[in-house]
Write a protein that binds this DNA or RNA. Structure first.
Lengths: 195, 195
DNA sequence: CCTACCGATCGGTAGG
DNA sequence: CCTACCGATCGGTAGG
């Protein structure tokens, strides 16, 4: 067992935050999932919000790293292929840990206003990768003309939605979902032969 | 002022539920928005959950009616045009009252399990309209072959996301957002000349 | 990691 | 719609 106690707490917390939301989850609920008393949690955690913050930060890091790897691996490829890789990378992070992804997508709203502002900035920087690639794709005529910000939001919202419904033993494997969603996102952007 | 007190309460509640979520909103918060005491709310409302339920039901009705109208108006048109109409109808409901839409999209999870099951069923029946139209579109080759359930979820999730970020005085008017999103959804499905 | 406990707030009721 | 109040639960601390 390599997982630290702190990590176990974050795992239990993110699972509960995903199911019920942050506000509806008590510290006693989290502790109960680990068979300890509510007060005992405070040996590992400064506050309930610090726990949320820690989970959100880790999730943000995962998405950023995955996008970095996709960008590095995609150097030299066309815009369409790079977008497909970016989408697949994002979906892989979501399906790899849907609890973490859900907290990043939804529950960050429960943070204090300063931390919320920081997450918003980080989310915007991440979304900007999608926007920039869309702008580039339109410029080189790989993508049809469209509002880049709106198209990026459209696609990213669709991808994030997977965190809500994905179940590891569902009809489609994580890999198939990633492939299908990459197809759908690509089609959303693709330019069609001059009409 | 035609709005009943009950309606004012539901409006205030859905605004707060949208901003903070159901669990993080107290009955005193809702009452405070109307400048009355928390206990006074119970002259108009049986319980906090009944209030949520009422809002969710109204929202569900709006989406269903809008889809009905779009289907009636679109009779005889091609699959692509009917899908565009369905998307525009959905987006119009969202932008017309983003508070209501957000509660329908997210906060229904806080309902008791029986009511939650009922909402889930109703949401699935609604999503089935999208699936059926996609199936039809693929059959008549207006749409490219794709997993209909996945494509419907992809598109609907993207549309619902508007409820989270839409602000009436934002960069794009409700009408422009509806048009752009109809374009994006159409492109997601459209078949491209045989490759 | 536990027991014992804190003040604050929660949804809701009684009785006007 | 108000005041007064209920038991339950909240996040968190003290002291071991």
């Amino acid at each position: 067992m390599v997982e630290t106690r702190r990590q176990q707490i974050e795992d239990a917390a993110s699972a509960l935050f995903r199911e019920r939301g942050y506000a509806a989850t008590s510290v006693r609920d989290i502790a109960g999932a680990l068979n300890i008393q509510g007060a005992s949690l405070y040996a590992h955690v400064a506050s309930k919000e610090e726990l949320l913050w820690s989970i959100v930060e880790r999730a943000a890091g995962r998405f950023e790293e995955a996008a970095d790897r996709a960008a590095t691996a995609g150097q030299g490829l066309g815009c369409l292929e790079r977008m497909r890789a970016l989408v697949r990378a994002h979906v892989a992070v979501v399906t790899d840990d849907p609890r973490l992804a859900t907290v990043f997508v939804h529950e960050w709203r429960s943070l204090s206003s300063e931390r919320r502002a920081e997450v918003l900035q980080r989310r915007d920087r991440y979304e900007a990768r999608f926007r920039a690639l869309i702008v580039e794709g339109i410029a080189c005529r790989a993508f049809a003309p469209t509002d880049p910000a709106l198209a990026a939001t459209f696609i990213l919202t669709a991808l994030n939605g997977i965190a809500t419904w994905y179940r590891p033993l569902g009809r489609l494997s994580a890999g198939r979902i990633a492939d299908r969603y990459a197809d759908l996102a690509a089609r959303t952007l693709e330019g069609r032969p001059t009409s």
